[in-house]
Design a protein around this nucleic acid. Structure first.
Lengths: 191, 191
DNA sequence: ATTAAATAAGTGAGCAATCGCTTTTTTCAA
DNA sequence: TTGAAAAAAGCGATTGCTCACTTATTTAAT
């Protein structure tokens, strides 16, 4: 890695950590610079603004996660294995870079409106998988968005609890529980 | 309602709306005053700071929701009816004052650390109900916090989707689905 | 020598909060 | 009932400060 790239990466990592610990709005460029051991002005050699620094990191992770989830589910033919693969992929990503995952989780409200319509989207990946399973008669037909929300909630609320410190340790050991629980939600007959 | 109380309520409602639409940090006292049709200085007759205005509203709702959930579940003896009552109560609260509910949902990360330890807590109410059901052998024994997170996630992620505009309309029509899904999550045998 | 990278001292805009003042409401003696 | 005095509510220009971002200068790699 060249020196410039290293500096850019250090700025991103420092910003990420602070953005999660406090929030984007409450983190100052001065703090980011101090945490990255550089001068404040150096940030602006790599990013046009604090907002764009925050947005770029969000969008990059958003797209990469969507692509990873889609690749994980694609090889499988039926809903059961697809759920397993998606849940495992989610948990792996959370455990591999928890700070980045938490940043993405906590800042959807701020940035979701700025995701390009045609960009890969983690939520759409799950929704489409569920939609297909409903069409194929694998699970009862409901509102697919609502069913997707509740199924995703099984995993994401656990991740949210981890952010709040209500729950500790990696998510991966609970993959089987999450996958079974998500399946159970989708198999519910009433609606 | 006296004039002063009316003004205080107008300040809170204006702040709430803006805090949800943007965020606490990105909302200015000037904007709050304009939305409430009062002068900026008048805010400080009723609140010592913008932070306290934001915190007070969060804590009041946090405590009231916890007490409502506890009262809703208490009359029932077994887990099934307790889940029904809790889910119905959650959805009623969300539908009755969606802005307040969304504010509470979106700002847990900022304020949860400032909740007094002895204050009633919505999450603890649910966790305790699940804990008792596990002890009574109504459902398989797991980590109660994790099970509570996943069960609550079924409802809260749907509410989150509503915040993001992925899902429309009141939550109450889906109470039966949410309750059945939460039950299904808790009945999962693997862990 | 050239130039990209980094620095550090600005700069001005925008912010929360203040305060001296005015207006409105309440109190209560005559 | 009246109306003068007191208290409460409301105002908005001002203040001091913090912030994101800029720019003139220095450092160091090739």
């Amino acid at each position: 890695m060249g020196k410039a790239e290293d500096t850019k990466a250090r700025v991103e990592r420092a910003a990420l950590t602070l953005f999660v610990a406090r929030s984007v709005a409450e983190t100052t460029t001065r703090e980011i610079a101090m945490a990255a051991s550089i001068a404040e002005g150096t940030i602006y050699r790599y990013f046009p603004s604090k907002e764009r620094l925050a947005l770029d990191m969000f969008l990059r992770h958003h797209r990469a996660l969507a692509e990873a989830l889609d690749e994980a589910q694609r090889p499988h033919a039926t809903l059961g294995p697809k759920i397993d693969a998606i849940v495992r992929c989610y948990c792996d990503w959370a455990d591999r870079d928890w700070t980045l995952f938490a940043y993405h989780l906590l800042n959807q409200h701020s940035f979701l409106a700025q995701v390009p319509d045609d960009a890969p989207n983690p939520v759409n990946v799950v929704r489409d998988v569920i939609d297909q399973a409903m069409t194929a008669g694998e699970i009862p037909k409901h509102n697919a968005d609502l069913a997707a929300a509740s199924a995703i909630g099984v995993v994401l609320q656990a991740a949210t609890y981890k952010v709040y410190g209500r729950f500790e340790g990696p998510l991966s050991p609970h993959v089987k529980f999450f996958a079974d629980a998500a399946w159970a939600v989708l198999a519910v007959k009433t609606g």
